[in-house]
Nucleic acid binder design. Structure first.
Ligand SMILES: Nc1ncnc2c1ncn2[C@@H]1O[C@H](COP(=O)(O)OP(=O)(O)OP(=O)(O)O)[C@@H](O)[C@H]1O
Length: 726
DNA sequence: TTTGGCACAATTTTT
DNA sequence: TTGTGCCAAA
């Protein structure tokens, strides 16, 4: 059984998989089977070496990769489940460890701690800046947040940071960082960086906890080691100390998260960091055709900070990498979509992917797909759990479970509105401060002591009842039932419905709340009814597609970052323009530029059979046309490996495909010009030319909002204004 | 306190 | 082009 498993590996891979122990680094290029080696090694350890699943920790980069890894191992071992095997991201692993053992630190956290998402953190920083009278104009909350995050990954506490701080920016950040930390501690909450940092502190400071995990993890395996940060490195160090069995795989050419604190030095220094570490190289690429591989290799060879490697393939040439220069971004998308339509004869939708540098680029491609009825799925981007309505509902659950969670309480205190406005909230916050207690305690005190007008006190009591109800019901029922109750008790759905006028599309928002409930049901059927666990999963979940059921046959649209670790037979790498890829904000420094080049390399090496690089001579940015230049990266790929193309990619057309084309041709064309619609150009007697921005109502009472070229925005009654369509 | 309107500013990448 | 925050009016 084990032998058969090893048969599907080449000699170098087999060496890695069966490596007896100690520290080892598999350093290898794209598509050389690193991830495969990890999966096989886990299976090998469990079967041939009789290691208990409980003793193995495998770290992946995303939750999705973790799931896939688990599935692969199960498949290799022909097992239905391996519940004790730890596979997950660093963050998930730390969250799990902290849930079990944070209290050993003796405060300030308890096991019900909340995990803050980026949105919560940003909101808090914004508020703290405002409290200090710092305008967002001068200092961007985002910059503050990333300074704090950077400090945390360097292991710099707020106090240490404040001591070291020099210069206007850092001197502004320092007190905010201090206040931020205090707030989180008081709220029994951790941000993403804290998960790692506090876990590390726990392991370093509590010998009994350290001993427990050091003893448990006889084997630690890490995928994508090139994108680990300093804290993660230290975690691995501590955890692997007893057994010394640390098995890492990575590719320095695919390090693309420096902006998030990843330190490429980790992989470059592996041998120095872990004495006696063995380095294993894999040089055969199993993924891409030769043309694709060589084009990518040539590109990344322009980087200087790399170890360098040979990478070869036995696959055929496979035709040159195509480069398409489109007149505009719309035509770029049209070209890509038409090509996919014609490639459908040979590939399933799901085998094709469109990659881009920024999320904003997805839109044009979505429209192009929509027009042609190409099923597509945007991976990442706008996350389901980040929607306002979803976050509101979750905040009730968070607050019910962790009453110290001040951010959650503050978020929902007056949502839906119950007459507790800004002044009341401020007074409550002051009261909490004065009595050195939590916000919820302050609310309770205020209600009991009648510190506010009676109407306000009644509202406060009502609010407390709901939080209590959540706490009580969470113990008995599953997340879905608790949520259902919250919705009823708060009238939240009705509130959304009323929001009709101002809020965008109330129905979609109500639908999102429903989807949340069904996601919970689904969770319950898989993992049981633990609300705490659900909230943790949700906080760490990245893409929304974890919600959706099963793989659908749809074209994938995603950023280059999101494409890491994946592979597709057909890849379109779009927007290869100067200042976009490489992005203007990263091209300033040589290091930044090299990372952009790696990003491009990652994108190219996702392709198995066909790779097309596209760029547009003109692109809409904020609705304004901009002239664009091709990316310098295009010039770094040798001419022999690329070919300029002009027409749509053709594959032999099947009857089915011809039908699809015809169908698409008949598909919804833009509405006829002569109808008053959003985007229509109009002329007004007095105001001259303008563009319709919005329409409300219909018939006689229809109102039109128009942006006039010379008079700005006006709202008019369509029936009286005498508008001419032009 | 709430609502709606309006100006304005923003886009890198994400656990 | 979208979203957000601020301000004025009810
Ligand atoms: N020995 C092998 N025989 C057949 N196919 C292989 C072998 N090794 C790897 N492959 C295939 O090559 C492809 C790439 O493997 P894998 O994703 O593990 O590579 P990787 O090194 O992790 O890639 P990347 O770093 O680019 O994400 C997969 O489709 C895998 O099945």
């Amino acid at each position: 059984m084990d032998d058969r498993m090893l048969d599907t590996l080449n000699p170098e891979q087999r060496l890695a998989v069966t490596e007896p122990g100690g520290a080892a680094l598999v350093l290898a290029g794209a598509g050389s089977g690193k991830t495969r080696v990890i999966a096989h090694r886990i299976a090998h350890l469990l079967s041939a070496r009789h290691v208990s699943a409980h003793s193995v920790l495998a770290v992946t980069f995303t939750n999705k990769a973790a799931e896939e890894m688990r599935a692969r191992v199960l498949d290799l071992l022909q097992k239905p489940a391996l519940p004790f095997l730890w596979i997950g991201t660093f963050h998930a692993m730390c969250a799990r460890l902290l849930r079990a053992d944070v209290e050993a630190l003796g405060g300030p956290y308890n096991r019900n701690f909340t995990i803050l998402d980026a949105d919560d953190s940003a909101g808090l920083v914004r508020r703290l800046l405002r409290d200090r009278g710092v305008s967002e104009r001068n200092i961007q909350p985002r910059a503050v947040l990333s300074a704090i995050s950077r400090a945390k990954t360097e292991g710099l506490s707020a106090e240490a940071f404040a001591e070291k701080a020099r210069g206007h920016f850092f001197l502004t950040v320092a007190p905010v960082y201090l206040a931020y930390e205090r707030q989180l501690a008081d709220s029994n909450s951790m941000d993403f960086d804290d998960l790692l940092g506090v876990a590390l502190r726990l392991l370093e400071e509590r010998p009994e906890v350290r001993a427990k995990y050091q003893h448990q993890f006889q084997h630690i395996l890490v995928d994508e080691y090139q994108d680990t940060n300093r804290i993660q490195y230290r975690l691995l160090r501590v955890l692997s100390e007893k057994w010394g069995n640390l098995f890492a795989v990575g590719d320095e050419d695919q390090s693309i998260y420096r902006w998030r604190g990843a330190d490429i030095q980790n992989i470059l220094d592996f041998q120095r960091d872990f004495r006696g570490a063995k380095v294993i190289k894999l040089e055969r690429n199993y993924r891409s055709t030769r043309a694709i591989l060589e084009a990518a290799n040539h590109l990344v060879a322009h980087n200087t900070r790399r170890i360098g490697k040979n990478l070869w393939t036995e696959r055929g040439d496979g035709g040159a990498v195509r480069v398409f220069a489109a007149p505009s971004d719309r035509e770029e998308a049209a070209y890509v979509a038409d090509s996919m339509l014609s490639l459908k004869a040979r590939y399933a939708w799901r085998q094709m992917a469109v990659l881009y540098r920024t999320n904003a680029q997805s839109r044009t491609f979505e429209e192009a797909c929509l027009n042609r009825r190409i099923p597509y799925q945007v991976v990442g981007g706008l996350k389901f759990y980040e929607r306002k309505e979803v976050k509101d509902v979750l905040a009730y659950l968070r607050a019910g479970l962790n009453p110290q969670d001040r951010l959650a309480v503050a978020r929902i205190l007056n949502v839906p509105p119950r007459g507790l406005g800004a002044t009341t909230v401020e007074k409550l916050a002051a009261l909490a401060e004065e009595r050195r207690t939590t916000l919820v305690e302050a609310i309770r005190a205020a209600a009991e002591e009648g510190l506010f007008p009676s109407r306000t006190c009644t509202a406060l009591r009502g609010f407390l009842d709901i939080l209590q109800g959540v706490g009580k019901r969470a113990a008995a029922g599953g997340p879905a039932a608790v949520t259902q109750w919250v919705l009823e008790a708060t009238g939240y759905v009705a509130y959304l419905a009323e929001q009709g006028e101002s809020g965008p599309d109330p129905e979609a928002r109500i639908e999102n709340v429903r989807e949340l409930v069904s996601a919970m049901r689904e969770f319950e059927s898989r993992e049981g009814g633990d609300l705490r666990l659900f909230l943790e999963r949700q906080a760490l979940a990245s893409d929304q597609d974890e919600l959706k059921d099963g793989p659908v046959d749809a074209v994938r649209l995603m950023t280059l970052h999101a494409a890491k670790g994946l592979e597709f037979p057909v890849v379109f790498l779009s927007g290869l323009e100067q200042d976009l890829c490489p992005h203007a904000l990263s091209s300033q420094t040589e290091e930044g530029l090299e990372e952009e080049r790696r990003l491009c390399y990652v994108g190219m090496t996702r392709a198995m059979d066909r790779l097309t690089l596209t760029w547009a001579r003109q692109r809409y940015v904020f609705g304004v046309v901009q002239d664009r230049l091709p990316s310098p990266f295009l010039g770094e790929i040798p001419g022999g490996r690329v070919e300029e193309v002009h027409g749509v990619e053709r594959a032999p057309m099947s009857l089915l495909e011809a039908a699809a084309l015809l169908d698409a041709a008949e598909a919804p064309k833009p509405a006829p010009q002569k109808v008053l619609r959003v985007g229509a150009r109009i002329h007004h007697k007095k105001y001259g030319f303008g563009i319709v921005l919005a329409l409300e109502g219909s018939g006689e009472s229809q109102k039109v909002t128009v942006s006039f070229n010379r008079f700005g925005r006006k709202k008019l009654l369509a029936s009286l204004a005498g508008l001419d369509l032009v």
